[in-house]
Amino acid sequence: MVKIADIEVGEFPLLLAPMEDVSDPPFRAVCKENGADLMYTEFISSEGLIRDAAKSLQKLDIYDYERPIGIQIFGDKIESMREAAAIAEEANPELIDINYGCPVKKVACKGAGAGILLDIPKMERMTAEIVKRVNKPVTVKTRLGWDHDTIKILEVAKRLQDVGIQALTIHGRTRQQMYKGEADWSYIEEVKNHPDIHIPIFGNGDIDSPEKAKEYKDTYGVDGIMIGRAAIGYPWIFNEIKHYLATGEKLAPPTFQQRLAAVRSHLKFSVEWKEGNKGIFEMRRHYTNYFRGIPGIKPYRARLVETPTYEETLAVLDELENVFGDMEMAEH
């Protein structure tokens, strides 16, 4: 059983990655229902939390069925991160997670997210201050380095472990790579197998099938896997991986009816959580992935992206059920 501090997260936990504008409560709900063991909120700006910014505060919303769950924060100022961690702790998650991996320019080039990989001593100081400020276990998600010439992930892991983090997730790319090229898990393996490392090490990057999950589990020996983009519109990947690891057999892909049920559930929660039209708009990014690979779906998908009301969206989904309801689904 893998434990983060005293929190049991499964024999080989599958984690849902914190993804901005994706990993909100409605999306997390369908992922939890389909086998995610540990989830994180979207990353939350430390400055936004301190200023009581409405968007940042809403990201603190967590629900009991999601547990265990971590709240992830980011920022470049140590004092702000300390205070944001304390605010996040009041929302009563199981974990506080620090984002040292976001590669996007507006975050990284200001010294937050993956930007702090250029200043490892500051990363260590910031982490130590957060660990001291909160009572909840603190975890970290990071990347291999800023670029190939600055990869010091083993040093990072040791220093963060020494100041008290309880688990580390490593995305096997540098900041410079963004999401391009192949994730290099050999560095993750080096950290996991080092005799000085005793906290759980989770690997992230490129896991998009049960076969790949098993291959990477067996090859690199990580304690668990974090899945991000592959779960968007396909939350079934968590249970598919679990089934494959347990039996060596692949589950049948979700039927069209199962996909439709997930969309309806996701949409309903989105509308309730974001109070109406905003929930409808934010759902639009998911339709392409939920209905990927279905011949003839394109005009219906275009309508789903254009419908302005919940009732009209439900009507289009009803049409889809009439047209495609009996379709056999191909493998993901």
Rank of each mutant, 00 (worst) to 15 (best):
R51Y: 13
D52M: 04
D52Y: 10
D52C: 08
A53S: 10
A54F: 05
S56L: 13
S56I: 07
L57Q: 15
Q58I: 10
Q58D: 14
K59N: 13
L60E: 03
D61A: 13
I62A: 07
I62R: 10
Y63G: 05
D64P: 04
D64K: 14
Y65T: 07
R67M: 09
I69G: 00
G70P: 00
I71H: 00
I71S: 00
Q72D: 03
F74K: 00
F74C: 01
F74R: 00
K77W: 08
I78C: 11
I78R: 14
E79T: 07
M81C: 15
R82H: 05
R82K: 15
R82T: 10
E83C: 07
E83L: 14
A86V: 15
A86W: 11
I87D: 09
A88W: 06
A88C: 10
A88E: 11
E90Q: 15
E90H: 12
A91K: 04
A91M: 06
N92D: 14
P93C: 06
P93F: 02
P93M: 03
P93H: 04
E94I: 08
E94K: 13
L95H: 12
L95T: 09
L95N: 07
I98K: 07
I98Q: 08
N99W: 10
N99F: 02
G101N: 15
G101Q: 03
G101R: 03
G101K: 04
C102T: 02
P103H: 00
V104K: 12
V107R: 01
C109L: 13
K110W: 01
K110G: 14
G111E: 04
A112L: 03
A112N: 13
A112S: 15
G113W: 14
G113N: 10
G115Y: 02
I120Y: 08
P121I: 09
K122N: 04
